[in-house]
Design a protein around this nucleic acid. Structure first.
Length: 574
DNA sequence: GCCGTTTTCGGCCCGACTGTTTTCAGTCG
């Protein structure tokens, strides 16, 4: 069984290899776009294939759909295997270094005959790369920095990659005979943006059967069994999976301790000990005269209750004062996905999105939303809009709204834009056209390498613009790919409070920007948050759940988040 | 390899940025 991501990687590698071979650039682009679409698909490709609807996915035609079917059927793709044999292994890895593309890697390979990141690093350190025509000291330096970054982010596992895999493994394990209960634990359960792997806890009669079943699951590698400890570990689809078996009576305590975090669990243990009890993965016990007696604790809720605490949702279990708050009954009533009433940042085919305004709006209707804000790029970024084009788009938004009204749909498409903030803090679109919009989202898309002072001044200047309601993806990070740019978060929070600017929590799962701690800080400052998906396709509206997870980790409640407001009140705020 | 209200061939986004050049190539979004 291959995940969407694994299938996407295969097509991406095919594109890379074809590019090395100088194949038709448009064919290469087709493979790349297919890979990107598959990678960000929210439904499992196997299901789509089963329904025979692969070619309905934009960018997937007859040839690629056949290849997807081959991968699903056989676990691999012949073409891919053959292509991989045709070039030195390390070249593909070299491509993953940011700032390095096929052209430069080819040039280096042809001249030096090297094909590994290690050799590349050595050459750069020996200052030999700069001897090649077209390369110089700056590029050499950039490559070294890129290698450093690549090494740092190499093993990073993103929540949105691990979560679907975890859910699928859980479903498969639940089918095994003798399994009484099973749950995902660990940092995935706490919904960390980056996770260490997948932890699954199972209560089972016959551990041997479970282990056997586990070893037979698709693409399990490096299986490691610890029969006595009731544990097994393996690598599935490149992700470490840790399986733990517990007796049914200990399930909740085991789930609690396995969910962590360590800091949170340690606080609970200390609390238990202070109350003459003992908490470990086997259960909660009363200790009297050296004798341990199990305290009733069938559920996690009961364990917390016995410790004199309100239930602490997994997202809060980070050792950030949540135990104290739970003791005082001061935990926030965390935001729920169902409280979200709209999405304030989505793209359409007017810029680099895949769908029309109406398509995106109808999908938002399907999610039960009351509104969606169309915020395409402004000129200078990703096929963005000029003033004139934006005015035409506003007109189309109005048409869609009129059509909806005639059909009796209580839904509003908001006219917006994601306007670029220039280096000097000015916006690339004039105030005239911005004043005609319902919502203006401003964002940095260039000159990422400014120092913190300049970047902060730049963003703060944009916040001063009276038309700007929201600042998008504040730090510009791309998880596993690009570090956040330097910016003084406190100064931005201060400026946001002063100007009443809303900060976006970008829910696109490789951004999640603001992060959880920024959210909590915003709340302290009294700065409001908009959770927006930045969807570039209709299915990506579902990324909202990742944004809500991060908001919950940041202690946010519905009242902290503007897109929980009904339309009328929202309009006042934006 | 994909796509089609110009539909089975022929076109497929393009500008910003950077570093290298001295008018351009490579990478990125």
């Amino acid at each position: 069984m291959k995940t969407n991501m694994e299938i996407a990687v295969i097509f991406d590698e095919i594109a890379d290899i074809l590019e090395f071979k100088g194949d038709n650039p448009f064919k290469i682009k087709a493979y790349r776009s297919a890979a990107r679409t598959i990678g960000s698909l929210t439904q499992d490709l196997q299901h789509v294939a089963k329904r025979g609807e692969l070619t309905k996915i934009p960018g997937i035609g007859a040839a690629i759909s056949k290849k997807i079917e081959e991968i699903i059927r056989t676990g691999k793709l012949r073409l891919h295997e053959e292509l991989k044999k045709s070039i030195p292994e390390g070249l593909l890895e070299m491509l993953k270094i940011p700032g390095l593309g096929v052209k430069t890697v080819s040039k280096i390979y042809e001249h030096f005959g090297i094909s590994s990141v290690e050799d590349l690093e050595r050459l750069a350190k020996e200052r030999r790369l700069r001897k090649l025509p077209g390369l110089g000291p700056k590029v050499e330096e950039r490559i070294l920095k890129g290698i450093e970054q690549y090494k740092r982010q190499k093993g990073v596992i993103l929540l949105w990659r691990a979560l679907p895999l975890a859910e699928r493994l859980l479903e498969e394990l639940k089918q095994v005979s003798g399994v009484q209960k099973a749950a995902v634990a660990g940092d995935i359960r706490r919904m960390k943006d980056i996770v260490s792997g997948i932890d699954i806890l199972v209560a089972a009669d016959k551990p041997e059967d479970l282990f056997k079943a586990f070893s037979r699951l698709g693409s399990v590698e490096n299986l490691n069994l610890d029969g006595e400890g009731g544990a097994a570990s393996a690598v599935v689809a490149g992700v470490p999976v840790r399986l733990k078996i517990a007796p049914l009576e200990s399930f909740s305590a085991a789930l609690l301790t396995l969910t962590g975090s360590e800091a949170h669990v340690n606080s609970l243990k200390a609390l238990a000990s202070a109350a003459g009890m003992k908490l470990n993965e086997r259960g909660l016990f009363k200790v009297e005269g050296g004798v341990e007696r199990r305290v009733r604790g069938k559920t996690e809720e009961e364990i917390y209750e016995r410790l004199g605490l309100c239930y602490v949702p997994p997202e809060l279990r980070e050792g950030r004062n949540e135990v104290k708050a739970a003791a005082e009954g001061k935990l926030p009533r965390l935001l729920e996905l169902l409280e979200v009433r709209g999405d304030l940042h989505v793209h359409t085919s007017w810029s680099d999105g895949a769908r029309s305004i109406e398509d995106m709006a109808l999908s938002a209707v399907g999610l039960g939303y009351e509104y969606v804000a169309i915020c395409d790029h402004s000129k200078s970024t990703a096929g963005g809009l000029s003033e004139e084009e934006l005015r035409r788009q506003i007109a189309e938004v109005e048409e869609v709204n009129e059509r909806f009204e005639r059909r009796g749909l209580h839904f509003r498409v908001l006219a917006g834009v994601e306007v670029d903030i220039k280096e000097d803090g000015k916006l690339v679109l004039g105030d005239d056209v911005l004043s005609e919009l319902d919502v203006v989202v401003a964002a940095v898309h260039s000159k990422f390498s400014l120092d913190a002072k300049a970047m902060t001044r730049r963003i703060a200047a944009a916040m001063e613009n009276e038309h700007v309601s929201i600042i998008a993806h504040l730090t510009g990070r791309l998880l596993g790919k690009r570090e956040p740019y330097a910016v003084d978060i406190d100064a931005i929070m201060e400026k946001a409070r002063e100007t009443g600017t809303i900060l976006e929590l970008n829910a696109y799962p490789n951004r999640l920007d603001l992060n959880d701690e920024h959210c909590r800080l915003a709340k302290e400052y009294g700065v409001k948050i908009a959770i927006s998906t930045d969807a570039h396709d209709a299915t990506q509206l579902q990324f909202m759940s990742f944004g809500v997870a991060i908001a919950r980790r940041g202690w946010l409640e519905a009242k902290d988040v503007v897109n929980t407001l009904p339309l009328k009140e929202l309009l006042k705020v934006i």
